[in-house]
Design a protein around this nucleic acid. Structure first.
Lengths: 339, 339
DNA sequence: CTGTTAGCGCCTTCAA
DNA sequence: TTGAAGGCGCTAACAG
């Protein structure tokens, strides 16, 4: 592996000039040609470790997520990685396995490894570890989930508004008894905010029995879906606030041979079929009505935001928050009660 | 950010000794205490970039795969990353999007970035880029797919033997007319080798019409499944050599409302339900008979093999090849013809 | 086991 | 614009 010194000897140009050339700064035409010739002859490549030592840039971004086998993340990461690679950045993956302690320690590890930025889908309720990074000048971008009271760049979707709109639409279709199955995640609470506001605005009476909160770490969503389904004079529609709840609904449907929407209507907040090799899920007819997230776009926008922040630096930090739009797809899984 | 020099000044112990201590080598008790005290006081952390410059170790492993949204990879990567992290290694992810040119360029990028090893699920037919790495002393471990004529560490599953056994079992159940849908991938060709050997050993006549080769880049598996299904006096059983073919079968089944196994029997080589949040696929009854791969174990073994190779180095290179066992799960999707 | 002495390969003043 | 010189933070060879 040849070094810059070899290029110096080969070309007769000093390594400082070569270094400048490598950084795209001005060099006389004569030198440029000499340098390029030598580089090509020696097949010289800049050693990013050595250059990182001085400049403390590693051209590496850390991606910290709770679980890569959650189908939500791979499409996002794929696009993020692709975009960042186009700009010369590598992506270090860090799966903290839904463990808050590991989330913090992984962040510290990455900071110590001197990554240039971190994309984080956090499971934390406080943002101390993030603030620590920001103070050190290490940009962090929150993905999908915000952290309360933390001012930080972020990329999310319109959880509140999309839920509000979708529930309004269901109400317009004649549904009055509406149940929901949801978890305590940030995204779910936003979605439930939209849900409740819709009921309120449309003067639907609230029935606390219809709201089933699930602890996804210890409980199975299908149990709660089943509760709603089996309630006498229960809801005519169930709102599943994320894919896990939607899966619960699918299970109940398949196991108990539910007729959708005759027995009950279903609406899911999440992509019903995320993976290219699992699109057949949508073939179980009728496909659930759903609010789907633009995963690829999320990845792309996260990358753009990251690049922008790397450019701007973290001095005079003014958080940039991007909110992308989801897509509501109504299918016959929600009955039209007006008729 | 304090450096080793600060620790030297604070502790009064020379930085070489400190460096040795940091590497876990022997140091007198007195010095150990001084060093630890100073490190704690200064909150010193070793700068991995600087140490990498000298030792040319980055404690980073590159993972190069065709498509992270293929449900096969995330569980493997997750486990691999976890195991490597336990030993102080980070994992750089590189998705080459099923593009052979990008596969090569990504490998070169990683080599240039001085990763300590590469885990590669290759789509290449020749191994020049891999040999280049090995010659430079950069270990490569092939994941899932071997490259013909390339001597290289690898981790695969028993594609040939498992297919052979499964097809034999079907034959014993009375199937004589057996079709297959397969692609040109390395794994598929191994599986088809097992398939053909089973027919041969059991004296089943070959019917070329029953073998449907699919180009997954341009063609849809369901078309070929359908061909077999609609053949007059066609096969009684279809062997789907990978999950994409299995999905084709699911599609045909759902769209044409096929009765399994009354209309036709199905056997799939691959995990029918890979993702924790998509296990409901197996609820479409009867679940397809399948040969499933131990994804987590593949990840773990890949990590172990990588660690071993990092230890051994690539001098006197003798490739280590690990072949893990798959699990055959027979369901009622394969009819018992003996009765 | 320890400290001294040189670098690793590159970047960045500085004076020219 | 250029080259010389010094250092980024750490490791490794050496003599003690």
């Amino acid at each position: 592996m040849s070094t810059i010194i070899d290029v110096e000897n080969e070309s007769g140009v000093s390594k400082s000039t070569i270094s400048r050339y490598l950084q795209g700064r001005n060099v006389t035409e004569v030198n440029r040609i000499k340098i390029e010739k030598a580089i090509k002859k020696l097949d010289y490549k800049l050693n990013p470790i050595a250059s990182g030592l001085k400049s403390s840039k590693t051209n590496t971004i850390g991606v910290v997520i709770p679980d890569i086998t959650d189908s939500f993340f791979p499409p996002i990461i794929k696009e993020f990685e692709r975009c960042m690679a186009e700009h010369g950045y590598h992506t270090i993956l860090s799966d903290y396995g839904n463990d808050r302690c590991r989330e913090v320690s992984q962040m510290n590890l990455l900071a110590n490894k001197k990554v240039d930025g971190i994309l984080l889908a956090s499971a934390s309720v406080n943002g101390d570890h993030v603030e620590l990074c920001l103070e050190q000048g290490l940009p962090v971008i929150l993905l999908d989930r915000l952290i309360p009271e933390l001012k930080c760049d972020s990329i999310t979707v319109d959880n509140y508004q999309a839920s509000y709109n979708a529930i309004c639409k269901c109400i317009e279709l004649g549904h009055r008894e509406i149940g929901a199955v949801y978890s305590g995640y940030y995204t779910d609470s936003e979605r439930m905010r939209g849900f409740k506001k819709a009921l309120q605005d449309k003067n639907i009476k609230k029935n606390p029995d219809y709201l089933q909160k699930v602890n996804l770490n210890t409980e199975s969503p299908e149990v709660f879906v089943k509760k709603l389904v089996e309630m006498k004079s229960g809801p005519t529609l169930i709102f599943c606030s994320n894919i896990y709840m939607g899966i619960g609904a699918i299970k109940v449907r398949l196991q108990d041979n539910l007729k959708i929407p005759d027995d009950i209507s279903v609406l899911v907040f999440d992509n019903v079929a995320t993976f290219p090799n699992q699109e057949y899920v949508s073939l179980i007819k009728p496909e659930f009505s759903s609010i789907s997230q633009p995963l690829k776009e999320i990845g792309r926008n996260a990358a753009q935001l990251m690049l922008e922040r790397l450019e701007l630096g973290t001095d005079n930090y003014k958080p940039i928050n991007i909110e992308l739009k989801t897509t509501l797809k109504m299918t016959s899984s929600v009955a039209d009660k007006k008729n």
